[in-house]
Design a protein around this nucleic acid. Structure first.
Lengths: 192, 192
DNA sequence: CGGTCCGTCTACCATTTGGTAAGTGCCGGT
DNA sequence: ACCGGCACTTACCAAATGGTAGACGGACCG
């Protein structure tokens, strides 16, 4: 299953044949079909599993964290840690996004609670003055784009000739946190 | 050719068969093979064309713009305008990134001058005090991720239930510009 | 020990894939 | 009038694709 996540993330769903996948798993294609019925079934299972992993990690990071900036900080740190440890999850998220409906419906449904809670947290924070005011949806989109973009594009990093090792990841995380601080922390006015 | 860009961007290279593409073009598959030799040849041509389009637009936007923030502003505005008008170019950039070497080598080579000039501009700006100091490569990566992420993920926008119309794009652009201002403008200290 | 359920395998299939070979019509040059 | 090249076609092909059918073997249970 982890191998399937990696394969779909690396080569895309269309670019991964059941034969290839079976070969890397040391089984035959029919074994896979036996367990998941069809390739579409496998895709659903893989997306569901990846979404569950994502949710588990982010939930775990945020729980117990007090409201406000420290929660944002914790979420970003968890996201970066996950992205460095399992970058294929981020790539798979993108693949699901590109496939669009109806293939992505399940993943969208699975992640919606997470998104909704983030939106509630942002909205509450803005209402109570912990965060700068703004459209929480657009802020969330920007934050997501910044976090996933820097870890899901190894080619991009190759163009600017940096490697995504732990040190670089920490520095990127600091930049992203700076960015989010500029967007959210109320004492800062970043509009010149 | 534009149809090929759209197809590769939408379904991915692996997910686009020459038969499908030929059908939407109203010709036969062999016509495509006649002009490009093989599918790999077509992919190369498509990537080269997309890179050329990207470079032309961004070059055009930046030329004549004075050094410093106004040039960043112009580049971001051009990038957003392009992303709204031709989102498939951004998607294709991602596809190239995912394919990795050697398929992406040409695209990487084509875009490198653009990247290098941006890095020089950032480095000079930091040295002369127009920009805050920092690693220009990482700043560029973050900026790229923020700009492309918000326009290349329609599913993401679907999750937060916003549509990428012109008004939304303008508001997202404003957020991204705020973000970059926080990263670059020297009078702001976003570290709390 | 016999049955039977479960996971896996071999064997096979129809369709689709990228690619080749061999024309066909057409246009410009001589 | 004729020839050559060009854009494009039809006709094919071998390999790969997702999927089906049925056999093999082992574990559990009576």
């Amino acid at each position: 299953m982890d191998a399937a996540i990696r394969a779909f993330a690396t080569h895309g769903v269309a670019g991964t044949s059941l034969d290839d996948l079976a070969r890397t798993l040391g089984v035959t294609k029919q074994t896979i079909l036996y367990h998941h019925g069809s390739k579409a079934g496998l895709v659903d299972a893989v997306f569901a599993r990846a979404a569950a992993d994502l949710i588990a990690v982010l939930d775990d990071a945020v729980v117990g964290e007090e409201l406000g900036w420290s929660r944002v900080d914790a979420a970003v740190r968890a996201a970066f840690a996950l992205a460095v440890r399992r970058p294929e999850l981020v790539s798979l998220l993108r693949e699901a996004s590109r496939l669009g409906p109806p293939a992505s419906d399940d993943a969208v449904a699975a992640l919606r609670p997470l998104v909704d809670r983030a939106l509630v947290a942002l909205t509450d924070g803005m209402a109570s003055g912990r965060f700068r005011r703004g459209d929480p949806r657009l802020v969330l989109v920007t934050a997501y784009a910044a976090v996933t973009g820097v870890v899901a594009e190894p080619e991009l990093l190759r163009v600017v000739e940096v490697e995504l090792d732990v040190r670089t990841a920490v520095r990127l995380r600091r930049i992203v946190l700076d960015v989010l601080a500029g967007l959210l922390r109320p004492e800062l006015s970043s509009q010149g």
